[in-house]
Design a protein around this nucleic acid. Structure first.
Length: 313
DNA sequence: ATCGTAGCCTGGAGGC
DNA sequence: TGCCTCCAGGCTACGA
């Protein structure tokens, strides 16, 4: 399932294949895919037609393409963007426009140059697309929200629907100090905090387990008792594991497809905790345990990550 | 205000 | 074989 590294791979693909191209039209074949676009599918399509897709940007698991008015006198800063969240099974695919329609094709965007089209394919329909306003970024105080590249268009701006989302740990704008303070103020478990996109974005169930394994912290560890060093370990664990996944993901991207596949895959062999129930911990050999928490699986090492005496869920 | 949970959705896996 | 249940899980709405 796409978490931050997978979404970043998609972003890079879009940067290569769609940036600078003018949208001719958009076709919504499943209204649920644009359910968060309040004005409806027709308005969604209408706002895309004739716009230029600028270089895509990303925060956490959200991806957006700033839209610039096409035609004459289009110098102003982009005020709108196409925002995408892939959910669990969403894919953004680029390919020959006349190829066969995918079974779960939800939205198709074609360009005025008649070249590769862009398709949103999503089996489980947890993902969505919408066109929305760009507003000043509350988190990226530096004005540069990272993505380690400088792009025209949309700097210091974020889609309005995600202003409440914190910066992700791979952004320059991420404020580690504020993150530590917020953790100490919370009265919850560390894993729930890592999954809370308003504290730190981009971390999903898989990378949360991996980060905590690296940090040697149990998922139910109360955040208010975390030492500064422990909180830093958790943050560094998240950074390291997502960075490593991104490196691997980056190498496997070179086809026409913007995203290889939505099912993760390539990084799977590198996982230390997630999905390794009863397999030996790579540090100490103890069989990895699986707990059910938040109605999903949590994997951890009973020895390296002992359950705290006082647990929070 | 803060914290925790139900429900959305589909198809693959496994049980019988 | 075919039907059933479970499982995956990010996010929002809602309740405590």
């Amino acid at each position: 399932m796409p978490e931050l590294p997978e979404v970043e791979v998609v972003r890079r693909g879009l940067e290569r294949w769609t940036a600078g191209r003018t949208i001719a039209s958009a076709e919504v074949s499943h209204p649920r895919a644009v359910r968060r676009h309040a004005a409806g599918p027709a308005d969604f399509a209408g706002r895309l037609a004739g716009r230029v897709a600028l270089a895509p940007r990303r925060r956490g698991k959200y991806l957006w393409i700033p839209l610039q008015d096409g035609g004459e006198g289009s110098g102003g800063a982009p005020g709108e963007a196409l925002l995408a969240h892939l959910g669990m099974s969403g894919q953004l695919l680029v390919g020959e426009p006349d190829r066969e329609r995918e079974k779960h094709l939800r939205v198709r965007i074609v360009f005025t140059d008649g070249g590769h089209d862009l398709r949103f394919v999503d089996q489980r329909t947890f993902g969505h697309l919408m066109v929305c306003e760009l507003v000043p970024d509350a988190f990226g105080g530096t004005g540069d929200s990272g993505n380690d590249e400088e792009h025209k268009g949309g700097h210091g701006l974020v889609p309005e629907p995600i202003v409440h989302i914190a910066a992700d740990p791979l952004e320059d704008a991420f404020d580690a100090e504020a993150f530590f303070r917020a953790l100490r103020r919370r009265k919850t478990g560390i894993k729930r905090a890592l999954l809370d996109q308003s504290l730190i974005s981009g971390v999903g169930n898989i990378y949360a387990d991996e980060a905590l394994w690296r940090a040697r912290l149990h998922w139910a560890r109360p955040t208010e008792t975390l030492t500064r060093a422990e909180a830093a370990r958790a943050l560094e664990g998240a950074r390291a594991v997502m960075g490593a996944a991104l490196e691997v993901g980056g190498t496997s991207f070179d086809s026409l497809y913007v995203n290889v596949n939505g099912e993760s895959g390539y990084f799977e062999r590198s996982l230390d905790a997630y999905g390794r129930r009863d397999e030996p911990c790579r540090r100490c050999g103890t069989p990895i345990r699986r707990d059910v928490f938040m109605n999903r699986s949590s994997y951890s090492c009973p020895t390296c990550q002992p359950r705290p005496r006082r647990a929070r869920y």
